[in-house]
Simulated scan of single mutants.
Amino acid sequence: MGISSDELPKVFELFVQVDRSLERAQGGLGIGLALVKRLVEMHGGTVAAVSDGPGRGSEFVVRLPALALEDHSYKGSAQTSEEAQRKCCILFVDDDPDSAASLAVLLDLTGNVTYTAGDGIEAVREAQRLRPDVILLDIGLPKFNGYEAARLIRETEWGRDIMLIALTGWGQDDAVQKSKDAGFDAHIVKPAKYAELMLLLSKLSKDGETAS
């Protein structure tokens, strides 16, 4: 269907959907191309998108390093700072199971251990069982919403040091303030940038530091 020039630089960002009406009708989540980019880069390659605009089609070019069969010296690209950080146990909570699972896969690629939950009650139960380092928690959840789940987790002794990150489509000032009041360490508005998530997770490598 083609991609407009203003959307083209953003197509590999997390949760970005070029044509939201069409993507939603077909169940698109805006995660696939971010996952492609991450996989290609882990193999030392690059991926790029080219389009002359809407209705003109799109071309996606993946370039990967080639190896001679007798060359045993290649050890992959140098470990990035995000890959060198302490690996985390992460719980994703979203009432869209495909969204939670896809984002979990994306962060699994950096060696993190990930789990998912689908509602607020399950979030609290899984948090108690897993004692994760990080919980990425949607706000608009069934049973308990994200604010209620966060408060319940923070009231427990085991939940005081967990990094709670609100990952939601609600970005109004009152929504951000409610997140702070409920005990969240950070509030990320979808579409979230992968680098933004990595920056927050990297803070766990520093003892006693939390996200602001």
Score class of each variant (00 low, 15 high):
T114P: 10
G120S: 13
R125D: 12
Y74R: 10
L137V: 10
E23A: 14
L141Q: 10
A34H: 04
L106D: 00
A104H: 03
S99M: 05
D95T: 08
V61M: 02
L29E: 11
L67Y: 07
A49L: 04
L33R: 08
H72W: 03
A66W: 02
S81W: 09
L29Q: 09
R131C: 15
P132T: 05
F144V: 07
G30K: 00
D94K: 03
R63G: 14
A104V: 03
G111L: 08
D71R: 04
G53V: 14
V62N: 07
E59S: 08
Y74G: 05
K143P: 10
G140R: 12
S21T: 14
L67D: 04
T110A: 09
R63Y: 08
R125Q: 13
E83R: 04
G140H: 08
Y147P: 01
F144A: 07
A104Q: 03
D133T: 04
I135H: 05
L67I: 06
E126P: 11
L137K: 09
R131V: 15
G55N: 11
P54F: 09
R56Q: 15
S99P: 00
G57W: 11
T46R: 15
S58P: 01
S81N: 09
R86Y: 00
R86S: 05
D95R: 10
L103I: 14
S58M: 12
P142H: 13
P54C: 04
V124R: 06
Q79G: 00
R86M: 03
G120N: 12
E23N: 13
N145R: 07
E70C: 11
D108W: 01
A48V: 12
L109T: 06
T46I: 14
H72G: 02
D119A: 07
L64E: 01
A100T: 03
D94A: 06
I121E: 15
L136M: 11
D108R: 06
C88Q: 13
D108I: 00
K143S: 14
I31T: 08
L22D: 13
A149L: 11
V50H: 14
V113E: 12
N145Q: 07
D108A: 01
G120R: 12
G111S: 06
R38Q: 13
R86K: 09
K143D: 15
V36K: 03
T116V: 15
A104W: 04
G140A: 14
L33E: 04
G45Y: 02
R131F: 14
L136H: 01
V40H: 00
A149S: 12
E23W: 08
I135Q: 06
I90E: 02
G27A: 04
G140K: 12
A78F: 08
S99Q: 02
Y115L: 06
A123H: 09
Q79I: 04
V61F: 00
L35I: 06
P132E: 05
Y115T: 08
S58L: 14
A25L: 12
K37T: 03
P65Q: 06
V105I: 11
P65G: 07
I135A: 09
V61T: 10
S73G: 11
A78D: 12
R56N: 15
E59H: 03
V62C: 13
H43W: 10
G28S: 00
D96P: 00
P65I: 05
E126W: 14
F92Q: 05
L91V: 07
E126M: 15
G45V: 02
H72V: 03
A49C: 08
L67P: 02
A117I: 06
G57D: 11
I90D: 01
A123E: 07
T46Q: 15
R125C: 02
D95V: 07
V124Q: 07
C88M: 14
Q79V: 07
